[in-house]
Simulated scan of single mutants.
Amino acid sequence: MLCPVADDDATLLAAWRDGDTRAGSRLFDRHYTRLARFFRNKVGDEHYDLTQQTMLTCLERCDQLRDDQRFAAFLLGVARNVLLHHYRTRARKLDKLDFGVSAVADLAPGGSTILARRHEHKLLLEALRALPLEQQILLELYYWEELRGGDLARFYGLPEGTIRTRLRAARQALEGTLPKVARQLGIEVTNAADNLETWAREVRPLLEV
């Protein structure tokens, strides 16, 4: 089957499901960077396998894509489920694994594998990994995918007010974690909370390699 002339996400996804491998390749290439950003600071080099798994899962579940839902948001939702399943299968005590408490720093010790040349970038990456995984996901969706209140509410299927409350709590947790991680890394930094938006914007390209 030839790749369709229209190349919007919905058309490519439908064509891929019908057996058009070229459409699948175009869709994968278009969203690979987004998936890399999602996984890089949470699983390191394993992001290659999880990215492939996410795209294949999207193909299997594309009938669940709602008419009012952007494919990118649907893709990130699948990526989140793939990530949580990844850590559940690695955990020894599944009944005690709580992603509202457990952090990547505990689940996959060893530090971020992302090459950060500036101390403040390294600090932000490690501080995010020290947060409960669900808070890390929420903040990275906010900072790096630029999903805001309404988008995040649709993503999680929760009221926007609930999302805003969780965002405030996650940001406060990050601001409280930054000084602790800075001491662990031997980094001196001032006004970290005031620089979060700038640091996040600068770190974003590092996740796309």
Rank of each mutant, 00 (worst) to 15 (best):
M1L: 08
M1P: 13
L2R: 15
C3K: 11
P4N: 11
A6I: 06
A6K: 11
A6E: 09
D8K: 08
D9C: 07
L12Q: 03
A14G: 02
D18M: 07
D18Y: 09
D20C: 15
T21F: 06
T21E: 11
A23Q: 04
R26E: 08
R26W: 13
F28P: 13
F28K: 03
D29L: 10
R30M: 03
R30N: 04
Y32P: 00
A36Y: 07
V43C: 13
E46F: 10
H47A: 06
H47N: 05
Y48E: 06
Y48R: 10
Y48P: 00
T51Y: 00
Q52G: 12
M55G: 04
M55R: 01
L56K: 09
L59R: 09
L59N: 08
R61M: 07
C62P: 04
Q64H: 12
Q64M: 09
Q64P: 00
Q64F: 08
Q64V: 00
L65P: 00
L65M: 04
L65K: 02
R66I: 04
Q69D: 06
Q69F: 07
Q69V: 10
A72E: 12
L76W: 03
G77C: 08
H86T: 07
H86Y: 15
R88F: 10
R88Y: 13
A91M: 03
L94A: 12
D95F: 11
L97H: 14
F99T: 07
A103L: 07
A103R: 06
A103H: 04
V104Q: 02
V104G: 05
V104S: 05
V104D: 02
D106M: 08
D106A: 13
A108L: 15
A108V: 09
A108T: 12
P109K: 11
P109D: 01
G110W: 14
G111R: 14
T113G: 12
T113N: 12
I114S: 00
A116N: 04
R117S: 10
R118H: 13
R118V: 05
E120S: 11
H121D: 03
A127G: 13
L128W: 03
L128E: 01
A130H: 11
P132W: 05
L133G: 01
Q135E: 15
Q135S: 14
Q136N: 12
Q136F: 02
I137F: 03
L138W: 09
L139D: 01
Y142N: 01
E145W: 10
L147C: 05
R148K: 15
R148D: 13
G149P: 09
G149L: 05
G150K: 08
D151I: 07
D151L: 11
R154Q: 14
F155R: 03
F155L: 01
F155P: 04
Y156E: 01
L158H: 14
E160Q: 14
I163W: 03
R164S: 11
R164F: 09
R166D: 10
L167M: 13
A173V: 02
G176N: 10
T177W: 00
L178T: 01
L178F: 02
K180Q: 13
K180C: 01
A182F: 01
R183G: 00
R183P: 00
G186W: 06
G186H: 08
E188W: 07
E188V: 09
V189R: 00
T190V: 10
T190E: 07
A192V: 04
D194Q: 15
D194W: 14
L196E: 02
L196S: 03
T198F: 12
A200R: 03
A200V: 07
A200K: 03
R201T: 15
R201L: 14
R201K: 14
E202G: 05
L206S: 10
V209L: 06
V209E: 05
